[in-house]
Simulated scan of single mutants.
Amino acid sequence: MRILHTSDWHIGRSFHGHPTLDALRGVLDALVAQVRENDVDVVVLAGDVFDSAAPAASCYSVLSDTLLKLSETGARVIVTSGNHDSAARLGFQSALLRSNITVLTDPAAVGTPVTVDDADGPVHFYGIPYLEPAIVRHRWEGVELRSQAQTLGHVMGMVRDDLAERGGRSVVISHCFAAGVEATPGVEREIRQGSLDVVPLSVFDGPDYVALGHIHGRQTLSDRVRYAGAPLHYSFGEGDKPRGSWLVDLDAEGLGSVVWLDLPVPRPLVTLRGTLEELLEDPAHARYEDSWVCAQYTDATPQLDPMRRLQRRFTHCATVVHTPIGGAADDGDDYVARVRRARDDIELVDAFLTHVRAGEGATAAEKALLREVVDARTMVEASA
């Protein structure tokens, strides 16, 4: 049996304020083409289908159109919910879907598989929606469920008990933060917001393959436990990680092979660092002019309107960060102390400039200009 493992579509998510729906449609069309070209039998989508619990109407059309296209390939499609999804909204129409599309969002059904047969016999797919311990613990009385590790440990015990009775090969689909993951920037925010904690890898002992979601970059925790990552780049911290899916083959004995299928990247991401002048003028950066750009300019002092100036060259400059190097050394006093020590208006302004310009106070020319302004104001006040 051939399985395509994908996850974390995050339909509706923006990229630094820019919409991503059109780009995601194109990437998901490429995924559908891969399903057809590789004669995939089952597509598993491991959670975070949407980016929010209340997605816009346009997000639903992306999902329904993609599910329809996947269904038309002849593949079976199994979808579970993640911590970003509303299980109720994602699952409400599951009974109305085509017979080869299954959406699993009900915690009560975690021990009951979706069974798909091939020439070698049955393969049991156990879909585990994201389970918030505080919400689901009442379902299993007498079991302490205060963490993701405890909750998934209990559920996987149910899976193993059911599999022992049924026999055959098995695949688990889950959305969690598993031990051994190499964290990437942006992931930690989601872990805290979703109250996710680390799940030991041993929790997933037993099945022939474990298709995980939640981490946005592909990761291999063992031959049989993997993250596919998101189909789009959703942060600059993911920029060096490929986008794609795992193509998993099960033979008569269990896991046969796993290969990676790359998906196209609609617009590459790059982080550029240098002075603002270097970023604007260096010909070496010409190849990035159509990329998503994170610009880190290193001038000692903040520059005027850097985003507008950078976007003249890099149309898709999405974020600008001031990361100064080589600024004048500060005297070690904090801003409040310098303000209190100031003897006149010029020293007060100088203290402010030192604070906001990475330790660089007023230049001689700036002090001369300040002196002119202060003297002019003094003359006006004296004549009033």
Score class of each variant (00 low, 15 high):
364 A>E: 07
9 W>N: 03
34 Q>G: 05
85 D>W: 06
165 E>N: 13
320 V>Q: 01
289 E>D: 15
232 L>K: 03
330 D>I: 05
285 H>F: 15
80 T>A: 07
378 T>D: 14
226 R>P: 07
285 H>E: 14
230 A>T: 12
296 Q>F: 13
221 L>G: 06
157 G>P: 02
79 V>T: 10
87 A>H: 02
179 A>P: 14
133 P>A: 12
349 V>S: 07
76 R>S: 04
90 L>F: 02
115 T>I: 11
358 A>R: 03
144 E>N: 04
240 D>T: 14
73 T>G: 01
18 H>Q: 06
23 A>Q: 14
205 D>M: 06
352 F>D: 07
138 H>N: 11
273 R>T: 12
170 S>K: 04
109 A>P: 09
89 R>P: 09
2 R>Y: 04
372 E>K: 05
384 A>I: 06
321 V>S: 09
380 V>W: 14
138 H>E: 09
123 V>G: 10
117 D>F: 11
19 P>S: 05
29 D>C: 06
359 G>T: 05
60 Y>D: 03
31 L>T: 00
340 R>N: 13
110 V>M: 15
329 A>D: 09
39 D>I: 01
118 D>A: 08
254 G>K: 03
56 A>S: 01
71 S>C: 01
380 V>F: 12
289 E>Y: 11
341 R>D: 04
218 R>D: 08
83 N>S: 11
212 L>W: 12
162 D>P: 04
164 A>P: 01
176 C>R: 12
142 G>M: 00
183 A>Q: 13
277 E>K: 15
197 D>Q: 05
123 V>E: 08
204 F>Q: 00
154 H>I: 14
32 V>N: 12
231 P>R: 13
201 L>H: 13
350 D>I: 13
353 L>E: 07
79 V>P: 10
367 K>A: 01
134 A>V: 08
157 G>T: 03
305 D>M: 05
210 V>D: 00
58 S>K: 04
39 D>N: 07
327 G>I: 00
250 L>Y: 02
310 L>Q: 11
353 L>C: 13
350 D>K: 08
28 L>T: 07
204 F>P: 11
206 G>N: 07
111 G>S: 15
100 N>Q: 11
18 H>N: 03
80 T>L: 06
142 G>P: 13
58 S>E: 05
155 V>D: 00
255 L>H: 06
287 R>T: 12
60 Y>Q: 06
362 A>Y: 00
127 G>W: 12
143 V>H: 13
33 A>W: 04
124 H>I: 14
379 M>C: 00
202 S>H: 00
278 E>N: 05
285 H>I: 11
23 A>F: 09
368 A>I: 00
227 Y>T: 04
213 G>M: 06
322 H>G: 02
175 H>V: 15
95 A>S: 12
175 H>D: 02
111 G>D: 15
124 H>G: 10
260 W>C: 05
46 A>T: 02
24 L>F: 04
240 D>C: 03
58 S>W: 00
249 D>P: 01
92 F>N: 09
21 L>H: 03
41 D>F: 00
265 V>F: 01
